[in-house]
């Protein structure tokens, strides 16, 4: 009984208020793009916001920016002007440029962590769900990793391995993996008992092929949803790491670093801290809204329940 309760609450933590990971959820029937937009107007706005952020990160040199690391002590802490759209920071660097280039770090970290955590968690989850002797061992390791607060684990990993973008990404992936493993495993455990899987086993399908052909497709919809939440949480953790001085090196213009630098003169120039903070909040909000819409869309059980109401 407790196991059920635990599983339930835990997926609830990982994915907001969704009741259960959609076991064996077949992909929802495709609907028109316009129809989707109409049903999820908020998600459409979120997608648009993310597209703008993503594009300006890619084309950062083309959106009215100058060198984000160029110092100009004579022009420090200026207000907004035609030359400096959002003013300058305490070293005379252009805040708008730093904000746009900072988006690159957040986008890269979000995408990289989501991709890595999903791939690693998927492989571990698929095998641990199917190989019975492996399951208790792997799950105890995952329980142990989950007992360590994610931010602390990431802080510790960065502080021992030195600050760089790669170590930051790796350090954020480690605490995210157990959540993906548990999600995949719960799907595998329910799919394992399905007649078509039993049939495949009985005709001697090799395990890798079985996992690939019959089990993996069931994992994809919940994983897509989970990936968005992982990306949001990764961007947040990256900023927190930088903020605490255990993230990307200070010379890199990232939102977390901008917030960390903005602390020093917060009482004089609060906007230098609040701009990157607000940019971060908007980005994470957009990713979360998109994730919620995807969850409603890809989880037919939930969609049905909401529809009944």
């Amino acid at each position: 009984m407790t196991a059920i309760v635990e599983k339930r609450a835990e997926t609830a933590v990982a994915r907001g208020d969704a009741p259960e990971p959609a076991p064996a959820a077949p992909a929802a029937p495709p609907a028109g793009f316009a129809g989707t937009l109409k049903r999820y107007p908020l998600a459409a706005i979120a997608a648009l916001v993310l597209a703008i952020i993503g594009l300006s990160a890619i084309f950062a040199p083309l959106v009215g920016t100058t060198d984000p690391t160029a110092l100009n002590p004579a022009a420090r802490l200026q207000g907004a002007s035609a030359a400096h759209w959002l003013g300058t920071d305490h070293l005379g660097r252009d805040v708008w440029s730093r904000l746009v280039y900072g988006a690159r770090v957040s986008v890269v970290v979000g995408l990289a962590v989501a991709a890595l955590a999903v791939v690693v968690g998927l492989v571990i989850g698929l095998f641990t769900g199917f190989i019975r002797w492996l399951d208790p061992i792997v799950m105890r390791v995952m329980d142990g990793l989950m007992a360590i607060p994610g931010i602390l684990l990431a802080i510790a990993l960065v502080s021992v391995s030195g600050a760089s973008l790669v170590t930051v990404i790796a350090a954020i992936v480690v605490p995210e993996v157990p959540r993906v493993v548990r999600l995949v495993r719960s799907v595998v455990l329910s799919v394992r008992e399905e007649p078509y899987v039993e049939a495949a086993v009985s005709v001697g399908t090799p395990l890798p092929k079985l996992l690939w052909r019959h089990v993996l497709p069931n994992c994809v919809p919940p994983l897509i949803v989970q990936a968005t939440y992982v990306a949001a949480s990764a961007m947040l953790t990256e900023a927190i790491l930088s903020f605490l001085g255990a993230g990307t090196p200070p010379i890199v213009p990232s939102w977390g670093n901008m917030v960390a630098e903005g602390r020093l003169l917060f009482q004089i120039a609060p906007m230098n801290l609040l701009y990157p903070g607000i940019a971060l909040a908007i980005t994470i909000l957009a990713v979360n809204i998109l994730g919620d819409a995807l969850r409603d869309r890809l989880d037919p059980k939930l969609a049905k329940r909401v529809g009944q109401r």
């Binding site: 900023a239 609060p270 903070g277």
Partner: peptide, 12 residues
């Protein structure tokens, strides 16, 4: 509440 980073909220 899930999206606004703790430090942004704190400084806000």
């Amino acid at each position: 509440g899930f999206s606004v980073p703790v430090f942004v909220l704190g400084y806000g």
